[in-house]
Design a protein around this nucleic acid. Sequence first.
DNA 1: ATTGAGACCTGTCGGC
DNA 2: TGCCGACAGGTCTCAA
Length: 273
Amino acid sequence: MPELPEVERVRRELEPVFRGQRISRVVLNRENLRRPFPVGFVTRLEGQTVGTIARRGKYLFFLLSSGEMLLVHLGMSGSFRVARRGELPAPTSDDPGHDHVVIDLTSGVRVVFNDPRRFGVMDLMAAGPPGDGLALGPEPLDPAFDAEVLARACARRRTPIKVLLLDQGVVAGLGNIYATEALHRARLSPRRAASTIATRSGRPRPAARRLALAIKEVLTAAIERVPGRRYRESRFRAYEREGERCRRRGCRGVIRRIVQAGRSTFYCPVCQR
DNA sequence: ATTGAGACCTGTCGGC
DNA sequence: TGCCGACAGGTCTCAA
């Protein structure tokens, strides 16, 4: 499920739960997710007090009093539940289903990590700037990410712009939905070679300016959006709207679905050029 | 150096 | 009802 906005929302939900709390108990209901839990995972977590939770791209970093950091990636289907102890089955129930990790805090709160597809990751890493060593590109909401940076990353790249936006080394945190949505917002065809929005004579093209801005707008709106009625309806302007009318004012196009790098892309062939 | 295809998993949904 | 394929918001690795 989660791209940058969803991960950021998880961060905001969990930080007040964890911050300043000590981890009293950790239970693993299996030995791996996408990859094995690191050696000593449980003992290195138990007894630690958690500080802030940082985010880089789609990764979360729980800062521990030991100096280590707990790294979490939600993959496709990872999620956390927060409950009071006792509201849930014992952490070592016979059938944990997809509840792979249970974390008890001294506050009496229990946090459960659930991940049916197990594309998620949990790991422990040495102290350091969150994200170091993960080869992530800039944070799209950081002012340092702008049209120039984006244009430079596009230079001489013949790959379609949509595919390039999914490259976490180019910009960290976009996934299939928000790459799709940003391109719709910027009125850019997902099929365009990335190089066609690169710099020209040292200046970013207007397309690069529109796209950098659209990325920021789409992500910001998604972080702040409040779920509610019509949430699903109004969520996307292109994603999963194949066959529907383009929602851009004045545009009479119909949203098409294509496959790029094995993933669905939705776009309006009329207003996205 | 890039790029595409396949692999990793389970769940859901639509069609027959 | 059941079976089957297509598809799902993400990486990672391998081969061309």
